[in-house]
Each structure stands twice: as C-alpha cells, then as structure tokens.
C-alpha cells in the first residue's frame, strides 16, 4: 500500500511540469531576486570577514564585552522561549478547546507582536515597567525591577516570541483526533494521563518547532529590547547592540566579525527549525 502510493505520487507531481507554463521564468526571477537581495549582500559579510586575519577575528568575537553579550542574548532568549512554550501551549489549548466570550478577539490579538512595530513594543513595555509605570509602580516597592536590566530583556522577548509558539501548536491541536482521546478514556485513563500520554506526544514536535522559532527570533531581536534593557556594558548589552556600537565607532571589521558569528548561529537555527518541521510533518502524517 505505502510503497505503491509513494511511487504514484512523484509521477503525478512530475506531470504538471509539462502542462503548466511559466516554470522557467518564475524560477529564474525567484533566483535572480534571491541572489540580488539576500545572497550577494550576505556573501559581502562573509567576504569582508575573510579580509581579517584569524587573530583579528578571534579578538573581535571573543572580547569580554562581546562574550558577556552572547551569554545574555542566549540566556534571555532561552528563558523567554521556555516561558513561551508553557504559556503558548496554554493559549493555544484554550483557544482550540474551550468556548468563552470574546474568543475571536483574543485569537486575533495573539498576532499583535507580529503586527506591532518592535520599537513601539519596546517603549511601551518600558513605560509600563519603569518605576512610575502602570505595572512598575506596584512592583518597585516590593523590590522587583523589571525595566533597565536583563529582566526587561526577557519580558520583551516573551512579548515578541509568543505568537510563534501559539501559531505552530494551534493548527496541530485543531487537527488532533478526538477518537484517540476517547479511546484513552475508554481504556481507563484519567484526563491528565490522556494529556501527558496521548495529546502531548502528538503536539510535542510542533511545540519544539515553536520553541526554536521563538528562540531564533529572540537571538536576533533588537528594536524591542534596546529601550527596556538599559544597555549597560557587560550586564544588559545584547549582541546586536554590540554590532551597532562597533559600527558607530567605524569599527567595520569588528562589527562584521560579530555579525558573522550571529549569521552562523541563525543559519544553524534555521536548519534546526527546518529539520523539526520535516519531523513534525512526518510525525503528524505517520498515524494515518
């Protein structure tokens, strides 16, 4: 069964290449545009890096301030992505499984971080969490400071990353088959057992994909973070800000070196996300 359908599929898919026109022109245009806008400019970064000697490069990317910024960017993105996994799953679950007043509005609002410019999110979160802000004024007497330190960075990254997790998990939950849960209940599983043993394994790949996307976005995020971070060297200075700082001092070589490190990290994350998505597709396709 499986092998015959697998053999039939490529033949069926290959046929249109002969029928539908426009393959060469659209592929040609796509490649040209991709090279002009993305690949050639990115290669400029790589070539510029190769003009540095290894020692120069190493000194630029491992300076103490730069190392501190890697730790901060990585740590804050990781914490924010983990928080988003928990709350993203909760939001997706509630939106898919329960009915409540205003659900459609809430569903639409989840995309706000995609639509709201990052700079606006940055100044707004700062205004909220600063000592005289709506939220900050209650937290400060308790000794909790969420603005102008690494906590603020985590908050900004939670805001930025939330829709990634919700929007990857939501469709998988929607497609989940209720029959499996019914079967689990019939076999005597409690609701919690059904969730951990039946539902969770089926959404785990999507959850991991959403985590990776939120994490990747957090690593590169700039606009929302710089307003709330306070930007103190060694303490709350993120890696993209290091690049900007070096550029402002006309240290193009140093900026390029750090940017190359970031580009390599984003390449790796992109490949990981792609692998996860392929896994997710197979995972969801397998039981059928």
């Amino acid at each position: 069964m499986l092998s015959s359908s697998a053999a039939a599929a490529p033949a069926k898919r290959r046929a249109p290449a002969r029928v539908l026109p426009g393959f060469k022109i659209t592929l040609g245009y796509t490649l040209m545009y991709l090279f002009l806008i993305v690949l050639i400019p990115l290669s400029a970064l790589v070539f510029k890096t190769f003009t540095l000697t290894w020692d120069q490069f190493w000194a630029a990317v491992t300076g103490p301030r730069v190392m501190a910024s890697y730790r901060l960017t990585f740590g804050a993105s990781l914490i924010a992505a983990l928080v988003n996994v928990v709350f993203g799953l909760l939001v997706a679950w509630v939106l898919v499984r329960y009915q409540f007043f205003g659900k459609k509005v809430v569903d639409a609002l989840v995309d706000l971080p995609f639509a709201l410019p990052t700079a606006v999110a940055g100044i707004s979160l700062t205004a909220l969490l600063a000592g005289n802000g709506w939220v900050g004024q209650y937290l400060e007497p308790m000794g909790i400071q969420l603005a102008f330190n690494p906590n603020g960075i985590v908050i900004a990254l939670i805001f930025i990353g939330l829709p990634f997790v919700v929007r990857t998990v939501q469709p998988v939950l929607e497609d989940a088959e209720k029959e499996l849960e019914e079967a689990a209940t019939c076999l005597g599983a409690s609701r919690w057992q059904t969730f951990t043993r039946v539902i969770f394994p089926s959404i785990a790949p999507a959850l991991l994909t959403g985590f990776a996307m939120a994490f990747a976005r957090g690593m590169g995020e700039y606009g929302s973070v710089i307003f709330i971070a306070g930007n103190m060297p060694m303490i709350s200075e993120i890696t993209p800000l290091i690049i900007i700082g070096k550029l402002e001092q006309y240290d193009y070589a140093g900026a390029t070196a750090v940017a190359t490190v970031m580009l390599v990290i984003s390449f790796i994350l992109l490949l990981v996300i792609n692998g996860l998505q392929t896994w997710q597709r197979r995972h969801s396709g397998a039981p059928v």
């Binding site: 393959f23 796509t30 993305v38 606009g223 993209p240 690049i243 390029t256 940017a259 992109l270």
Partner: peptide, 28 residues
C-alpha cells in the same frame, strides 16, 4: 506547482531573512 532538484534548498533560502537579525541585515 513544480518538482525540481534543490527545491527544499530554495525554500530554506527564501526563509533565510526571517532568521537573520535585523541589525545584520542592515550591516550587509
């Protein structure tokens, strides 16, 4: 609409700007 060699690579490359930090995008 078509099947061709390197399609998955092309799809990945189309996604690339999403994962590049905006600051790096400006720098290039």
């Amino acid at each position: 609409k078509y099947e061709f060699k390197g399609k998955s690579v092309l799809t990945t490359l189309v996604d690339l700007p999403f994962s590049v930090s905006p600051v790096v995008a400006g720098l290039v």
